[in-house]
């Protein structure tokens, strides 16, 4: 229990740190973002009601003469209520509803692609490590090339080959625009079809890292005495490989999930831009390009919460599969 409590506590601290960063970054930057925002809003014919202005001020900071600490707690209160302000670029939509529309796309695409690449990397890494010294070793340098390729460039290449030249997949978008989003086969099929290339990009770019990490841990695990014992016990090779070597080798990969996930998410955001995918990454850029600070910050928070959540899940899983973390000492 202590392990879980500690992990939960840590993620609460991390969440608080992210919220605090979010509060201070605009205040540390030059210029007065609230004014920029208001000007932009009026340009678009939006009305500046005092409540909206107050919410921006809390989010971005302004010379209201209010003590920082009061602003801070008011800001935290807004965040807890899920009040992320009003978007400028899609005025008068609430930031939360803009995010609500874009989030499922990203969650499904990045989530599935990450799971797939993690699973693929772990399995391939285990096999490559187990068969060390065979031709499979030549896979290793190949994966490093893949890992060093920028996500968006790979996306560009895939688009150039499979969309522009061969025409197998659509060039961009999340679904065929003639369809109305809904739970029908036509739309879902189109969404899957449009998601293929982005997903392939994410899987191809991230699988190398998982594979390599797993392979190295597998090699280390194979020289452990318990693997030797398992062989001496006359167990079947598959069992020695899975229950003894891979089972132990996968632990560091899980422990290092946080580091790798950061890269995957970062890469995915840019990938969305290449495909004009209607996900959160494209919205983040839209926010940046339109000085839509509220949207920008909201998205940063949502991404952070999602990443923290994913890491928490992995940590809990880790606690479940490594009995040593459950020690009560």
């Amino acid at each position: 229990m202590r392990y879980y409590a500690r992990k939960l506590g840590f993620y609460l601290v991390a969440l608080w740190a992210a919220l605090t960063l979010n509060f201070f970054i605009p205040r540390m930057m030059p210029g007065n973002p609230v004014d920029t925002l208001m000007a932009k809003l009026q340009q678009r014919g939006g009305t500046v009601d005092p409540a909206a202005r107050r919410s921006y001020e809390l989010l971005l900071g302004a010379d209201t003469g209010e003590p920082l600490i009061i602003q801070y707690f008011a800001y935290l209160g807004n965040m807890l209520r899920g009040d992320l302000g009003v978007s400028v670029s899609v005025f008068p939509a609430e930031v939360s509803s803009v995010i609500g529309q874009a989030l499922p796309w990203t969650l499904v695409l990045v989530g599935l692609a990450t799971l797939l690449s993690f699973a693929l990397g772990i399995v391939l890494g285990a096999v490559v490590g187990w068969r060390r010294g065979s031709w499979l070793d030549s896979l290793v340098p190949a994966t490093t090339v893949l890992a060093a390729v920028p996500y968006f460039w790979l996306a560009l290449i895939l688009v150039a080959v499979f969309a522009t030249a061969l025409g197998w997949f659509p060039l961009q978008g999340g679904y065929d625009v003639v369809l109305t989003p809904g739970w029908n086969t036509g739309f879902l099929g189109s969404a899957v079809y449009h998601g293929m290339l982005p997903a392939l990009t994410i899987v191809l770019s991230s699988v190398g890292g998982w594979l390599l990490g797993m392979r190295n841990m597998m090699v280390s695990a194979m020289s452990e005495d318990y693997v030797l014992t398992a062989r001496a016990k006359g167990l079947r090779t598959t069992r020695v490989m899975t229950r003894y070597a891979a089972r132990n080798a996968v632990l560091p990969s899980l422990a290092g999930f946080a580091i790798s996930l950061g890269f995957v998410v970062s890469g995915s955001i840019i990938t969305e831009q290449v495909f004009s995918y209607p996900g959160i990454g494209s919205k983040l850029l839209q926010g940046v390009q339109n000085n839509d600070y509220a949207l920008m910050q909201g998205i940063f928070l949502v991404i952070t919460v999602a990443v923290l959540g994913a890491n928490l899940v992995v940590d809990l899983l880790y606690g479940f599969i490594d009995p040593r973390t459950r020690v009560e000492t």
């Binding site: 960063l21 930057m29 950061g262 998410v265 970062s266 940046v288 940063f300 991404i303 952070t304 990443v307």
Partner: peptide, 12 residues
Amino acid sequence: LVIPGLPLVIVI
């Protein structure tokens, strides 16, 4: 480590 880097950089 757990706060995603690139989104933060983009915001900044």
